[in-house]
Design a protein around this nucleic acid. Structure first.
Length: 113
DNA sequence: AGCCTGACCTAGG
DNA sequence: TCCTAGGCCAGGC
């Protein structure tokens, strides 16, 4: 991770998000050691579409569990469909029971170093 | 080569 | 309690 840039770190964390769980930009940014770089997390995740391997970018939402970037999935309901297919309930672009399915990399993942 | 922007978050007034 | 501003890394024009 240290060798890799901020982007690589984001990709690794997002790929490690368990199925049926969601994480937030801020949590990932904080995990990478830059709490105020949450904006770049969104950018990195956006760039994830260019990656060879599929990255569950739909599992990444903002701190209130809202599908802020759903419009970037090509279709308006693509992100919602993906989440619901994993058992996540989404209503009006907001993840229900967000507190329960929230996955914090800082707690669940080993430190990057 | 420099400026602008971007799927956000936190703090201060 | 709501609104405003600042900050971060990287890529595009």
């Amino acid at each position: 991770m240290t060798d890799a840039g901020f982007f690589e770190g984001v990709f690794q964390v997002v790929r490690c998000i368990p199925l049926g769980r969601v994480s937030t930009y801020g949590a990932i940014a904080r995990y990478l050691g830059s709490p105020q770089s949450s904006r770049m997390v969104g950018w990195a995740v956006n760039k994830s579409f260019s990656e060879k391997e599929f990255i569950p970018a739909h599992r990444v939402v903002n701190r209130i569990g809202m599908l802020s970037g759903k419009h970037y999935f090509g279709g308006a309901n693509t992100m919602k469909e993906l989440l619901e297919s994993e058992g996540i309930v989404v209503e009006d672009d907001q993840v229900q029971d967000f507190c329960k399915i929230f996955w914090d990399p800082v707690k669940e993942m080993p430190e990057p170093e």
